[in-house]
């Protein structure tokens, strides 16, 4: 068995280059945010004696009249339309309780899923008893935010062929801030062989076999049942490499996009790095340094 002992890690290759960009202001709790007349108070702020005061550590953002503070670290706050990946925690009361890295468990109602064979009908008590057949505790699924209640409770739906149970892959957790809203969250990366990635806005990322192209939205499609299938060793290698590349980007707090993942992936292939060596922080640091160099 090989045992490697690491020296205390030095600074990240990114630490030395300057500070916060000048347009954005970093605030701490209790700090007064300068305002103009007629502003609207957003998240992460409070009002006291007519002054706007920050309540979280983060950057001040302004969208027309709305002023809010975007924390650089926090749990996921839902927004309608977000693609998220979650794990079923509990079943009961005609709904699935899904863990999504939020302050409360999200809920997926029985009425918010498509029945197999895309049958359109009322959900009966029989369906409620059969819920475990669709999704059992511990299952991982991709889904979309349908509604966010005033107290932050997230309601989900999977009423599209692209959402549903995920299998034949692995889950990576990263800070939710690293996955920005982008054009496509479910992509097949052009690795060799291809790897499917679901970039959940909540920081849960699924890496697995590529999604089947046939799962297209039509009025009456047949739900593409995801089942266990044999994953070949080269396919496993590719999945693990992508997984380690995502973890590498996240360790250095870099944004995750299909492009950035592919760039690091190619850099690791170019450098002829073993998949297993990508868990070594020193190798990862050099890899990220290489990636930054190619970008600038």
């Amino acid at each position: 068995m090989n045992v490697s002992i690491l020296t205390p890690s030095g600074p990240s290759p990114l630490d030395s280059s300057g500070g916060i960009s000048s347009q954005q202001q970093l605030v701490m709790p209790g700090q007064v945010i300068p305002t103009h007349s007629g502003y609207m108070r957003g998240h992460g702020t409070t009002e006291e004696n007519g002054q706007l005061i920050a309540t979280v550590c983060g950057l001040v953002e302004q969208v027309s009249a709305l002023i809010y503070v975007r924390p650089l670290r926090s749990r996921y706050v839902g927004e309608v339309g977000d693609v998220i990946v979650g794990r079923v925690d509990e079943i009961g009361n005609g709904r699935w309780y899904v863990e999504v890295c939020s302050s409360q468990r999200a809920q997926l109602h029985l009425a918010a899923i498509n029945l197999p064979g895309s049958v359109q009908r009322r959900r009966t008590e029989e369906d409620e008893k059969e819920m475990r057949r669709f999704l059992a505790e511990g299952d991982i699924l991709s889904t979309e935010v349908q509604r966010v209640q005033s107290d932050g409770l997230i309601l989900l739906h999977t009423r599209s062929a692209k959402y549903g149970k995920l299998e034949n892959g692995c889950l990576v957790q990263v800070p939710p801030q690293l996955v920005r809203r982008q054009a496509s969250h479910m992509v097949n990366l052009p690795c060799e062989p291809p790897v499917g990635v679901v970039l959940g806005n909540n920081g849960y990322i699924w890496v697995g076999l590529p999604q089947r192209e046939s799962a297209r939205d039509t009025i009456n499609y047949a739900l593409g049942e995801v089942t266990y299938q044999a994953v070949s060793p080269p396919q496993r290698q590719a999945i693990c490499r992508v997984r380690n590349c995502i973890a590498a980007l996240s360790a250095h707090y870099l944004q995750l996009t299909p492009q950035s993942i592919m760039d690091v992936y190619s850099a690791s292939v170019r450098g002829k790095l073993e998949v297993s060596s990508l868990t070594n922080p020193e190798v990862v640091r050099d890899l990220i340094r290489e990636y930054i160099k190619t970008k600038t």
Partner: peptide, 24 residues
């Protein structure tokens, strides 16, 4: 403490590209 937090965030903010607008 503020300086310490600022340093922690400066490191992370460097890495994260500046604000991108939501495109969906």
């Amino acid at each position: 403490m503020r300086a310490c937090l600022k340093a922690a965030y400066a490191a992370s903010q460097n890495a994260a590209p500046a604000k991108t607008t939501a495109t969906e």
